[in-house]
């Protein structure tokens, strides 16, 4: 279609609001954190240029290093445990067993509920005095396993991430969608050749939904890096900062008016996020950008 002069004006007018909002809330802030991470700045006195000093400060801070480690564990657990679980369930539901729609619906519930509500729910489960988990252990006679799940140095961080790993609904639906787009004829041909269901899954389905699996891994790992609500609500980084994560660290720096350090940790978070995305793209050799 030939574009008229008025079309060009219209295109500009229509693109402008989105671009302005994007520039204000994505481009400018990213540039802003990079630049201000080089400043010593408390929001009151004048900012001074300190080079990479903020980075030196955060990378010598034990709490920040723990946070990075925790985020990486969280991201890996998401990508390597949560996504494979989701894939397994998607493979089962793809054969449309009885009631598969109900399963699909229910599995997705945790993804529409706020992180705060979920965290509060699980704090009731993990609580040492009146918690459900300890109550359950008492009933089945495993009193010895009872503990203050979120207060104990050893169990706090595992408790924090494990409960989330079994919420597979989001990734399951993404993978299921791609499975259902695979032509039926492939399976017909395979079963004529005598391939078992398991072999069909391994050699037809999984290779053909590589795209959605890599999408899910990217999303799962990025969520692992972004974590905040769960930690903030359940442990606030304790005990002894064992459960701190990068965003919580960043938030605490802001509360202490260390904006330079906050932004330096923000830059680290963005860089790690970008590395994760690039690595997964390379690993899966996904040509086209997929979400």
């Amino acid at each position: 279609m030939r574009k008229t002069y008025k079309d060009y004006i219209g295109m500009l007018v229509f693109l402008l609001p989105a671009i302005v909002l994007f520039a204000a809330f994505f481009l400018y802030p990213v540039g802003y954190v990079v630049v201000t991470s080089l400043l010593k700045w408390d929001g009151i006195t004048k900012a001074t240029f300190v080079g990479l000093n903020n980075y030196k400060l955060i990378f010598t801070d034990e709490v920040f290093l723990t946070s990075i480690k925790n985020n990486i564990i969280w991201a890996l657990a998401g990508g390597l445990i949560q996504v494979p679980l989701a894939l397994m369930i998607a493979l089962i539901l793809a054969r449309k067993p009885r009631g598969w729609k109900i399963f699909r619906t229910v599995y997705f519930f945790p993804n529409i509920i706020s992180g705060v509500a979920l965290a509060m729910m699980w704090s009731a489960i993990f609580n040492d005095e009146y918690g459900v988990l300890n109550g359950l252990l008492r009933i089945i006679g495993l009193e010895s396993l009872q503990r203050n799940w979120l207060g104990d140095l050893h169990s706090a961080f595992p408790s924090l991430i494990i409960y989330w790993l079994f919420y597979i609904g989001y990734f399951m639906i993404i993978i299921l969608a791609e499975i259902s787009s695979i032509p039926e004829t492939y399976y017909e041909a395979a079963s004529i050749d005598g391939a078992s269901k398991l072999k069909q899954d391994l050699f037809i389905t999984i290779p053909l939904c590589k795209g959605s699996i890599s999408t899910c891994m990217t999303l799962a790992m990025v969520y692992g890096l972004r974590q905040f609500e769960q930690v903030y609500m359940l442990t606030n980084g304790g005990p002894a900062n064992k459960t701190s994560v990068m965003v919580l660290y960043l938030y605490k720096q802001i509360q202490n008016y260390r904006y330079g350090m906050a932004n330096a940790s923000g830059v680290v978070l963005i860089i790690i996020g970008a590395l994760v995305i690039i690595t997964i793209k390379k690993l899966f050799r996904v040509e086209k950008y997929q979400m």
């Binding site: 989105a18 994007f22 204000a24 809330f25 994505f26 400018y28 802030p29 990213v30 802003y32 954190v33 201000t36 990217t218 990025v222 890096l225 972004r226 905040f228 990068m246 965003v247 960043l250 938030y251 802001i254 904006y259 906050a262 932004n263 940790s265 923000g266 830059v267 978070l269 963005i270 996020g273 995305i277 950008y289 979400m291």
Partner: peptide
């Protein structure tokens, strides 16, 4: 378009200070 969709993966939690300032 690429610019927009790259935004999906930006960890916006890292941008607390600039959002607050803005």
């Amino acid at each position: 378009f690429t610019m927009f969709i790259t935004g999906i993966l930006v960890p916006i939690n890292a941008l607390m200070v600039p959002y607050f300032t803005l």
